[in-house]
Design a protein around this nucleic acid. Sequence first.
DNA 1: TTCCAGGTGCATA
DNA 2: TATGCACATGGA
Length: 274
Amino acid sequence: MIKSIEKTKIIVDKEDFNLVQTLECGQVFSYFKENENFIVQSADKVANIEEKEDCYIINTNTPEYFINYFDLTTDYSLIKKKLSKYSVMKEPLNYGSGIRILKQDIFETIISFIVSANNNIKRITKILNKIRENFGKRIGKYYSFPTLNELKGANEEYFAKLGAGYRAKYLEKVLKELENFDIEKSKELPTEELRNKLISLSGVGPKVADCILLFAYSRQDVFPVDTWIEKMYNQFYESCSNRNLIRKKLIDEFGNLSGYAQQYLFYYKRSYLK
DNA sequence: TTCCAGGTGCATA
DNA sequence: TATGCACATGGA
């Protein structure tokens, strides 16, 4: 997987890693294309990623951060091998074979997925970029995602002006609630307890909580059910409109591989089948 | 014009 | 506990 690590660069081969699939499978909103390269941002870190014929060159001042971020030390061929015994996974695994689940910044993920609720990806990205530009720190020509402390000055009116719509009031409220939320300690909690804690936050329901657990806390025993997973379930399994029931049945089926399975299925359903 | 987007919160029974 | 509806906004 990792071919070499230098002070400002990581070289990774393309086995079990496709950058476009990983970025465009809906788990992250903080990236964009610059010329032929991709710029990927996370909290106050930046990487400029160049694609070569047989590898990617991840240019960054913080290589260790992005090794963790892209989960480059996990063996995805083993995960895919385990998932391939499920017949429903055959096509999704083939279609999204280069997806990796990112390990994103917790605060940024909480804010991002509150914005994502009942929203489209284009508008979500636009809103989050404005938050960066207005409250983040300048890193070269880019902006960091603000910390809780840096974003404290933002209120409902500000978020509404950005186009956050009715989520603006959730965002103002959640900033206050997060002052009493110890992120470092929360990492130690068991999934179910942490899930309940997240759901108690404004603008965070079952689906957003599951996305935060999967994309920021790396919990694999969750299965976020959104409009696309509901469509997928109705197509591949049975007719059902109760998302909580769908979630429980899929977790029963995939167990500790639920998070991975969800992402391959989501990407396949949303990008390929529609 | 109407429908939909990686849903949540709240009232009601 | 379960169901139904309101909620901003912009693209298709």
